[in-house]
Design a protein around this nucleic acid. Sequence first.
DNA 1: AGAGGTTATGCAACCTGTTGCATAACCTCT
DNA 2: AGAGGTTATGCAACAGGTTGCATAACCTCT
Lengths: 183, 183
Amino acid sequence: MALEHAILVSLAEKSASGYDLARRFDASIGHFWKASHQQIYKVLGRMEGAGWVTSELVAQDGRPDKKVYVVTAAGRDELAAWTSRPSTVEPTRSEMAVKLRALPLGDEAAIVDDVRARRRAHEQQLAYYLDSAARYYPRPDDVTRDELGGWLVLRGGILAEQTGIAWCDEILQRLTGPAGDER
Amino acid sequence: MALEHAILVSLAEKSASGYDLARRFDASIGHFWKASHQQIYKVLGRMEGAGWVTSELVAQDGRPDKKVYVVTAAGRDELAAWTSRPSTVEPTRSEMAVKLRALPLGDEAAIVDDVRARRRAHEQQLAYYLDSAARYYPRPDDVTRDELGGWLVLRGGILAEQTGIAWCDEILQRLTGPAGDER
DNA sequence: AGAGGTTATGCAACCTGTTGCATAACCTCT
DNA sequence: AGAGGTTATGCAACAGGTTGCATAACCTCT
């Protein structure tokens, strides 16, 4: 129910083709709302049917034609209306939590490896976010009104990754002991 | 791909009917893996077909019969095998993040209200977790091997809720100013 | 000319989960 | 006897998303 709106936000910033959107979702917005190109094409079709966007075929040289989507007035209205509706809390789904509960029934060494892998993933993502923050928002106190949303989203990402790392550390300490953080 | 395993874990702790499981999912495990009763019944049927569980009709007095599910050896094998497979990172989906990016295009007052509501929800959930921690794990350093998983999951919940509150506070401070945390 | 990569769009089949509804046994309260 | 609540199981239709595949224009490298 919200991929539509994530696409509207992205298109409102800059009109784009399905392919462009898929790449943007791989890079920035996608860190907080994943979508495959198939899903994006499908939803774009639905959105065009609803009159939220219009498309225009653009010929390019050196590469195939593309279909550029532009947000309509109705699309902007829908986006505004959506922001004024209370958001639904997305259900938590933590595979890690289920695995932890399965500890006495499963392969503890493999679970420890899995936690280590998750910790590495969190660290990598955190490094990426910190780099983005330093690059795009060098002076956080001076962010403009237009940049504010992006900055706050990035802050949320940073906080979440740091928390993920802290949780993994607590788990590893309990499972491998005080000397278990070697390697 | 993991509701099956959440159910196996729950059934391994204690055999139960679909109805019992639905209530457990409302209470404890469900905080980390939501499931409706319809979905639980559907999956239980599939699991019985796969031979992971068997069911037995149990007559009760004062209430309708129930179908009690018991984990089989194959079910335990599957659970063990699952724990040794690396977990897939569940895609992040933050409606809040999308709304923040839509700030200049939407209804800012409504978004602020929404953040406040989320903050309250996080606080409520945190209070619930802290209460559970005090009640079931009064001495965290002494948790037994069997309790360890449950304790670590609860810790993850506590950390996540605290982070959620911290993020909301950052957002509110930026959107309503230093005096905006009244009420 | 052919192989392999990038840009670009899309369909079909499938899986998971949600929403809404139906059924039924049994209890308590009026 | 009837209304309303709890316990208990389940189906059908739909929505959202994933996986796998197909197509095609165009580029560069061999």
